[in-house]
């Protein structure tokens, strides 16, 4: 009975919320603050010509720095939550499947590099490239070509933390020049590409780690 009353109250509150929010949105006036013009006006100073990448790494580089830190923390949390460390050898899939995974993995790495490179002037960038890298690692694990990760060794640790460390180092170096992540326009393109390359590798490893560390128990 109590559970039924709770359901009733929650559903009603949700419906009231939806009605109120829809009503408010329908009579919403034009935006008080339009950031589109400032973003395009200063685009030439950012070192990239794709506005979303400019926002992510130049205008709001701070957000991206904290984001990669959050990802690293989540991975640490997963490692700390632990689990039965019984990572036996993975079950090998059908040879045909393994062969196509072997063919697909290099292509996926190529796609990741393209996405990273294209991010400067087209939709794409470090996040998408890192996700494709992670997908390649997960694919290789699922067909039984790579083992699940048990506990990270030194090289893997360096890879996981490298993107964040590189980003932080660039930010600290720029702090001595004036402002945190205030890129000098002449160097902005190169610095952003350097940061993005580091981010891609680390993001790929961290996102793959979410899967590979989690799937180590019971295999």
């Amino acid at each position: 009975m109590k559970a039924l009353a709770k359901t009733f109250v929650v559903v009603w509150l949700a419906l009231v919320f939806v009605a109120a929010a829809i009503g408010a949105m329908l009579e919403l006036g034009p935006a008080a603050l339009d950031l589109r013009a400032p973003v395009t006006d200063h685009l030439t100073d950012t070192g990239v010509s794709h506005p979303v990448t400019a926002v992510l790494l130049n205008y709001r580089g701070y957000d991206t720095l904290l984001e990669i830190a959050v990802l690293l923390l989540a991975l640490l949390g997963i490692l700390a939550a632990g689990g039965a460390a019984g990572s036996a050898a993975p079950k090998a899939a059908h040879p045909m499947l393994q062969a196509s995974a072997r063919l697909a993995a290099p292509l996926m790495i190529l796609v990741a590099v393209y996405l990273l490179w294209a991010g400067a002037f087209l939709p794409g960038g470090a996040f998408q490239a890192g996700a494709v890298l992670a997908a390649a690692a997960v694919l290789l694990h699922l067909v039984g070509l790579t083992r699940g990760w048990d506990s990270p060794r030194l090289r893997l640790r360096l890879g996981l933390a490298g993107g964040f460390a590189l980003f932080l180092a660039v930010a600290a170096a720029l702090l001595t020049q004036g402002a945190l992540l205030g890129f000098p326009p002449a160097w902005a393109g190169e610095l952003i590409m350097l940061i993005e390359a580091g981010l891609t590798v680390s993001l790929g490893l961290i996102l793959a780690g979410f899967f590979l560390f989690l799937s180590r128990d019971l295999r």
């Binding site: 339009d34 950031l35 589109r36 973003v39 506005p51 979303v52 400019a54 926002v55 992510l56 205008y59 709001r60 957000d63 991206t64 984001e67 959050v70 990802l71 989540a74 991975l75 949390g77 997963i78 939550a81 996040f127 993001l203 996102l207 979410f210 899967f211 989690l214």
Partner: peptide, 22 residues
Amino acid sequence: PDPVPHAMVLTGIVVAVAATAL
């Protein structure tokens, strides 16, 4: 389209998968 919310949502999607994994 406004690139600022696009970048925010891009960040949000990646953080959401981290939260889901944890």
